[in-house]
């Protein structure tokens, strides 16, 4: 931990850590962690995913080349392991997003700002999910109900808003870690802001930090 070092080396450590934390693998790991811990869908990291894919492809080519050139199998398998880990991160990231989309398809689709956080293939996926789910509910339940009660989103025609759409619980606590040297958060129920230094972990309401994810804080 940083406390163990003198003033001078703290700055050095910080620099080193900043450098380490900005490799794409680390960024992808952070993106995955944020996505996993956040109750709602976050902005799709298009650039990062693109870079990660390019790097994975490069690694695949390298491994293949090594295999063909009869390189020492141990070295090849080390490269292979590195490749597997990168693949796992990328897959997990895309997967955890899809699973969120499955869970909150109706909610995400009707909310413009959430919908705009999706990649193009994700948008197509949600649209299909909604169609399939609606058809399924229609066939199994809704078609058997009286006329005024056949909406999948509303209880009956007198409902003024969607009152049957599953929504994520935003009023929940998450653990977050400050990613900047100094972060000050304004809490709802306290007059004093919550001040965090780098690496401090706090347990706060998701609503309070949701706009700061990836900027000032990362979820853990």
């Amino acid at each position: 931990m940083a406390e163990d070092f003198g003033e001078g080396s703290t700055a050095g450590m910080d620099e080193y850590e900043t450098l380490m934390a900005t490799t794409d693998v680390e960024l992808l790991k952070t993106a995955l962690r944020n996505e996993k811990a956040a109750p709602e869908i976050l902005q799709f990291q298009a650039q990062l995913v693109k870079r990660a894919r390019e790097q994975i492809q490069l690694m695949e080519e390298t491994v293949e080349e090594f295999e063909q050139s009869g390189m020492d199998p141990l070295t090849v398998s080390l490269y292979q392991m590195d490749l597997d880990r990168a693949q796992f991160l990328l897959r997990s990231y895309l997967r955890v997003r899809l699973q969120k989309l499955e869970k909150y398809m109706f909610y995400i689709w009707k909310n413009d700002s959430l919908r705009n956080r999706l990649s193009e293939p994700e948008k197509i996926f949600v649209k299909r999910c909604i169609d399939d789910m609606e058809k399924h509910l229609e066939e199994t339940v809704l078609s058997k109900l009286p006329d005024n009660y056949q909406s999948a989103r509303r209880q009956s025609i007198i409902s003024e808003e969607d009152d049957m759409v599953p929504e994520p619980q935003l009023d929940t606590f998450v653990a977050c870690k400050s990613s900047n040297r100094f972060v000050s958060l304004t809490l709802v129920d306290s007059e004093r802001p919550l001040e965090m230094e780098r690496h401090d972990v706090s347990f706060v309401l998701y609503k309070v930090i949701k706009d700061k994810i990836g900027v000032d804080v990362d979820l853990v």
């Binding site: 597997d84 693949q87 796992f88 990328l90 899809l98 293939p121 994700e122």
Partner: peptide, 17 residues
């Protein structure tokens, strides 16, 4: 099918690993 179509668009199997 919806899942498969997504996977083929991003050209990555997501149900392994």
């Amino acid at each position: 099918l919806a899942l498969e179509s997504y996977m083929s668009k991003v050209d990555l199997d997501l149900n392994v690993d």
